[in-house]
Amino acid sequence: MAVRVTFVAAARGSSLLGERFEDDRPLDQAGWDEVQRVAHGLVPLAAAELRYCSPTPRSRATGDALGYAPLVQLALRDCDMGRWRGLTLGEAMAREPDAVDAWLADPRSLPHGGESLLTFIGRVGSWLDTRPGEDGGRIVAVAEPSVIRAALVYALKAPPATYWNLDVRPLSTTTVTGHAGRWNLRFDAGAAQSTLM
């Protein structure tokens, strides 16, 4: 039974250089402006039978601004970064350079005391694999870019290190179509999204 899950990356709440681990800041004015600029292309996704979002303020606000009225899914929360929560990568590196290097090199590592990258990818993948729906059913999920990257690594059965090479931009869309254990990547010509089918 194949379902279609379209991930919408939450609008940003800060500049990319100011991104923080488990960032709970709301949308800034630039984020609101971005939502307004692209809304015409994303509003039709509200027709999905099921609409979800990450629990972050900017994911909820993005989904609400697009008319999705999404249901918060705790499984779509960002990676638990333990004592690094709220820090930028640069701040964590300044405090614990060896620990950051270990975390970036080993997906099982959790020097921050939170969740390993491997566990994070598995949690998001489990959510994806258990989506309800009938054959051809449509789902939309507004999530943090990190969550979408984890979903892509899981769906593609890619090595965990692939996570660091995926660039998910605010308000971009990525669609996965299939069922547990069966996902394929397809790029549509002329489309501004990547599609897994």
Score class of each variant (00 low, 15 high):
M1H: 14
M1N: 10
M1K: 13
M1Y: 11
A2W: 10
T6Q: 15
T6C: 15
A11Q: 02
A11T: 06
A11C: 04
R12A: 15
S14E: 14
L16C: 06
L16S: 10
E19R: 08
D24N: 10
D24I: 01
R25E: 13
D28L: 10
D28R: 07
Q29P: 09
D33F: 08
E34H: 11
E34N: 11
V35Q: 00
Q36K: 11
R37K: 08
R37W: 06
R37M: 10
R37Y: 09
V38H: 04
V43N: 07
A47E: 02
R51W: 01
S59T: 10
R60G: 08
T62C: 07
G63Y: 00
D64N: 12
D64K: 15
A65E: 03
L66P: 02
P70E: 03
L74G: 13
L76Y: 09
R77T: 01
D78R: 12
C79E: 00
D80K: 15
M81W: 00
R83T: 08
R85C: 12
G86L: 01
G86W: 00
L87D: 08
E91G: 05
M93C: 14
A94R: 00
P97T: 11
P97I: 15
A99L: 09
A99W: 04
V100K: 01
D101L: 14
A102I: 13
W103S: 03
D106H: 04
P111F: 10
G113A: 10
G113M: 07
S116R: 12
L118A: 01
L118Q: 00
T119W: 04
T119E: 00
F120D: 00
F120N: 04
G122E: 14
R123L: 04
V124K: 03
V124D: 08
S126G: 09
W127Y: 08
L128V: 08
G133N: 07
G133R: 09
D135C: 10
G137R: 08
V140H: 07
S146I: 06
I148W: 00
R149I: 09
A150M: 14
L152N: 03
V153L: 00
V153Q: 01
Y154H: 07
Y154L: 02
A155K: 01
L156K: 04
A158T: 06
A158I: 04
T162K: 13
N165S: 11
L166M: 07
L166F: 05
R169C: 04
R169L: 09
T173C: 14
T173R: 13
T174Y: 07
T175F: 10
T175I: 15
V176P: 02
T177D: 05
G178E: 08
G178S: 09
G178L: 06
G181Y: 00
W183K: 02
W183G: 10
W183E: 08
N184P: 15
N184Y: 11
F187L: 09
F187H: 11
D188H: 06
A189S: 10
G190I: 01
A192I: 14
S194M: 14
S194D: 11
T195I: 15
L196C: 10
M197L: 05
